[in-house]
């Protein structure tokens, strides 16, 4: 008697064993395909991602060219590294976490227009007035007067011309010498500022620079001194130094006059 059950079991085992190589080969091929799918498309996406990030600002035409003819770029090394790390996020050029805060600054250019309007108005009002420097060079008229100046020491003659009052002085620079002597004695910044202004008006910019510098050293909070100092520097051809001085001064103060002068130097309207 044949044991049919035993035969059937044996047949089943045999059948299963015969299928094992097939199943294994299918599994292997599937896993190989899966691996291919995993790795090959990943490298492609990295390439395209990099291309996009790199070529983004360039025109579309250039993009197509780069795709057709891939040339070795310096971005190869990062790609390889990223493949090794198996992280796609790091490829992206991330924007900086700490964004710069937008700083708004006031614009005071309109002040120039107002000031220009004022000077034009003054010129219209006083057409007879001669330029300051020429009048000082001739030593006939003392154009700059200050509180520190002793009015008794100057012999002034008043000339009335209809409605206009002209104060003229025939004295030379003896009053200035007197102020310089007084300054050397008491080191008063008001006196040195006065001297600086006088020298500047006379066109002696080196001396005005020196006295303005002395004034700044004694008292660095006198706005007018910084203005004269910077103006003298410009007249001496030191535009950059003048601008840097004004910029550093503006950092500590909110001087409108300094700001206006700085912009005039920058725009070239003050020479």
């Amino acid at each position: 008697m044949l044991n049919i059950h035993e035969l059937e079991r044996q047949w089943l085992r045999y059948k299963i064993k015969s299928y094992i190589p097939l199943v294994l080969s299918i599994f292997a091929s599937v896993s190989i395909i899966a691996l291919l799918f995993i790795y090959v498309p990943l490298s492609d996406t990295i390439d395209t991602a990099v291309e996009i990030t790199e070529v983004e600002p360039i025109t579309a035409q250039v993009q197509t060219v780069t795709k057709q003819e891939p040339t070795p770029e310096p971005v190869v090394a990062p790609i390889e590294l990223n493949i090794a790390d198996n992280t796609q996020v790091k490829i992206k050029v991330e924007p900086k976490e700490e964004r710069h805060t937008l700083v708004l600054k006031p614009s005071l250019h309109f002040m120039d227009n107002i000031e220009d309007g004022l000077t034009a108005f003054i010129e219209e009002e006083m057409p007879m007035q001669e330029p300051l420097t020429s009048s000082l060079q001739s030593n006939d008229t003392l154009a700059v007067l200050d509180d520190n100046e002793n009015p008794d020491s100057t012999s002034t003659t008043e000339q009335t011309d209809e409605n206009r009052l002209n104060i003229t002085s025939n004295q030379d620079d003896s009053d200035l010498k007197d102020v310089i002597r007084r300054f050397k004695k008491n080191k008063n910044p008001a006196l040195s500022l006065f001297i600086a202004k006088r020298y500047y008006a006379a066109g002696e910019y080196q001396k005005s620079y020196n006295y303005a510098l002395m004034t700044n050293e004694i008292d660095k909070n006198i706005e007018e001194s910084w203005i004269i100092f910077s103006k003298s520097l410009v007249k001496l051809g030191q535009h950059e130094l003048a601008m840097n001085t004004l910029k550093s001064y503006l950092k500590t103060t909110k001087s409108t006059a300094a700001d206006v002068l700085l912009r005039k130097i920058e725009s070239g309207t003050f020479k």
Partner: peptide, 15 residues
């Protein structure tokens, strides 16, 4: 809040 800033004292203190 992430706002622009200025050189004014209010902006400095706000920041």
């Amino acid at each position: 809040l992430k706002l622009p800033t200025t050189d004014h004292v209010l902006s400095i203190v706000f920041g």
